[in-house]
Design a protein around this nucleic acid. Structure first.
Lengths: 217, 217
DNA sequence: TCGCGAGGCTTTGTATACAGCAAGGGGCAA
DNA sequence: TTGCCCCTTGCTGTATACAAAGCCTCGCGA
């Protein structure tokens, strides 16, 4: 693997996991020494992070980790609604019904299994990721899939910020099952609507549980 | 201005204007010599082009200019519909009605002025760009605006490919006026629907006039 | 004549050295 | 004492030199 890729992956994970908090200045020399690569590949990594929107280049101060305020969260979810509703609708038109019917059943069974214990939680997250991946494949649209991938990086950052409780996860599983079911039934409008509902509930839940110390920015 | 910015802008324009056709290999040494910059800033420019989707990094062969087939055009318009319909709806909710009413009137007056002569054509393009900019400002959403900006680069490439005739431009002006009017009336669903109609007609027109020699790829 | 392999050559990937610039601190003057 | 100016220092931006990896080609053997 290339050094620039390693530096990019490492920095991106550090940002998503909140080890590098918003406002942190990513000095080229400092980070290159920390990650054990030269300045050239590190610069490339910083450029990619900036393109992703995870960092912003500030005149004279270098590259700093992006803020993620409540307002930006709302903006992010507006974009998410545009992309994911469209994706759900396209998946309903083009996806393999059997695959999504299977996902629907497994998601519908998830709430009963979901306790407060973390192992099941990871299992559910994996299931949700599987649904995302299935939608990505089903839509047959490189541009849309790429936009969704870029969006999910930001969403991963949000997830770390406002940890979901078991009750919310159970509800989310139901909502996901509804989406998968609508896609399996080739019902595009319903798939889109179910996605909108899910996103609205998710945003509301995050807003309610948003840590106060991160609300500035 | 930075050397990397100049290289990026120059290469992007060359690609959009079809001076660099799809499949062209962008060798680092060759392009750095042509543009009069070193390899380091040129690499940064190539990385940005790749992130934009205008070029793709091919293992071993370097960076090549992306193809733009009819199929990809369809995918592009699906993404465009998702983003622009959402943007139109948000603009209807948040935009300044007076500004869009003004745009509506000027766009409605455009078809009468639009002859086959190029000067008026440029004037109309400027008017359409003004509508885009007004929407960008009205939506108050950085993420969505950024996605739209990235999308428009690709659309500029398409425009150069399938030149619009006067009849299509007149119709497009009417459609744009409808969108602006719906936003001015704060009618979000109508704004979204009018955008969908416009995009559908645009795509159909482009598909009809698509040059055969560019249809492969 | 065709297939395989080794060598060279071109390419990218990385490191380092240099230049220009901007910001901060210290000193001098009012 | 305070404000302004200059100097120093650290940074980014750029260039170039070096290393490694892939591909093409030429030659040899079957």
């Amino acid at each position: 693997m290339k050094a620039s890729d390693r530096a990019y992956a490492s920095l991106r994970e550090d940002i998503v996991e909140w080890r590098l908090v918003p406002g942190t200045v990513l000095g080229e020399v400092e980070q290159s020494e920390r990650l054990g690569v030269s300045r050239t590949p590190l610069r490339e990594a910083l450029a990619r992070l900036t393109a992703d929107g995870l960092a912003t280049a500030q005149r004279g101060r270098g590259v700093v980790v992006s803020e993620l305020s409540l307002g930006q969260l709302g903006e992010l979810f507006e974009l998410r609604e545009a992309l994911e509703c469209k994706a759900a609708a396209l998946a309903a038109q083009r996806g393999d019904p059997a695959r999504f019917a299977d996902l629907r059943d497994r998601l519908a069974a998830a709430p009963a299994l979901l306790a407060d214990r973390d192992p099941q939680r990871q299992e559910y997250y994996a299931l949700a990721s599987e649904l995302d991946a299935a939608v990505d494949e089903a839509i047959l649209n490189t541009y849309l899939a790429q936009s969704l991938a870029g969006l999910r990086v930001h969403l991963a950052r949000v997830r770390r910020l406002a940890r979901d409780d078991a009750a919310r996860l159970r509800q989310a599983a139901v909502e996901h099952a509804t989406i998968a079911g609508a896609i399996a039934d080739r019902n595009a409008p319903l798939a889109s609507a179910a996605t909108a509902v899910h996103l609205s509930n998710s945003l509301q839940h995050i807003r309610t549980n948003y840590p106060k110390e991160a609300a500035h920015g």
